[in-house]
Amino acid sequence: MTQIAEALETVKPTAQDALGDSVTFSPIRWKTGWPHHLRRVPPFRDDATASITRSEVFAFGEDVRESGFAREQIIDFLGACFAYVAGQSNQVMQMQAFLRNKGKASQLLAAVRKLDGVGAADAYGALVATGLPPKFASAVAYFLAGEQESGEASKPVIICSNRARLAGLSSDADWTAEEYGEYLAALALARDAYDSSLQLDAVEWALREFARRSE
């Protein structure tokens, strides 16, 4: 039994498990450190703590697509996406520093605008090429692609060291687009053996949950 199969049998994930996954973050921490040069602050309330679910981040991604990838909607989406991925970790400061670099922020906005209709591995590759860390790049691609349907294998999912390790990837960071494609293929293969109707991000969520329980 592969580790992905073991995670699926142990966690028994559902689509709603992934969509309802909630992360606690600090809206005021993000707002006070948000770069002025972007000329727009994500619509967070001035609260010390709040929670955000994957479903809510998907809604921001949908706003981006419906707006035709308008700048303001992209910025709001990035705020929600980064808040979900960083949570209350020190990655908040890392991503604020990334966005304060005008060149990198401009490259990221330009890359996001070109993602419509792009395949999962290529979308991930375009985002990491801006200097965005792999976990955040995969999350941007994942949430922009929209909620997943049963049995889909072509959409992006989030990657991190724990998820990649359980999927059999040898490296623990800086995955290439090709390696990211191998990660998606490994998840799809295990999913099809377990339940071919399951959403791929439910498999990814199961890996994260399995790793958390094993800590």
Rank of each mutant, 00 (worst) to 15 (best):
M1P: 09
I4T: 10
E6A: 13
A7E: 11
L8D: 03
E9S: 14
V11G: 01
T14H: 01
T14A: 01
A15E: 09
Q16S: 10
D17A: 00
L19Q: 02
G20P: 03
P27F: 12
I28H: 12
W30H: 04
T32W: 04
P35T: 14
H37P: 04
F44Q: 08
D47W: 05
S51Y: 01
S51I: 07
T53A: 13
T53E: 09
E56R: 07
F60E: 08
F60M: 14
G61F: 01
D63W: 03
R65C: 10
I74T: 08
I74V: 15
I74Y: 11
I75M: 10
I75R: 05
I75N: 09
G79K: 06
A83V: 10
A83E: 02
A83G: 01
Y84W: 15
G87I: 04
Q88N: 10
S89P: 11
V92R: 03
V92H: 05
M93F: 15
M93C: 09
Q94R: 11
A97S: 05
F98E: 00
L99R: 00
L99D: 00
R100T: 06
R100K: 14
G103L: 10
K104R: 09
A105W: 07
A105D: 01
S106I: 11
S106L: 04
A110K: 07
R113G: 13
G119C: 06
G119H: 07
A120L: 00
A120I: 01
L127P: 13
A139R: 11
V140E: 04
V140W: 06
F143E: 05
A145W: 05
G146N: 12
G146L: 10
Q148L: 02
E149P: 12
G151R: 04
A153I: 01
I158P: 05
I159F: 00
C160A: 12
A164I: 02
A164W: 00
R165N: 11
A167Q: 10
G168H: 13
L169H: 08
S170L: 12
S170I: 12
S171K: 15
S171H: 14
S171V: 15
A173Q: 12
A173K: 08
D174W: 06
T176S: 13
A177Y: 05
E182N: 12
E182W: 12
L184I: 07
L184S: 06
A186M: 01
L187N: 04
A188H: 03
L189P: 00
D195N: 08
S197C: 08
S197Q: 11
L198A: 02
Q199M: 08
L200W: 01
V203G: 02
L207G: 13
L207P: 15
L207Y: 10
R208C: 06
R208H: 14
F210V: 13
A211M: 07
A211S: 11
A211Q: 12
R213F: 12
R213K: 15
S214Y: 15
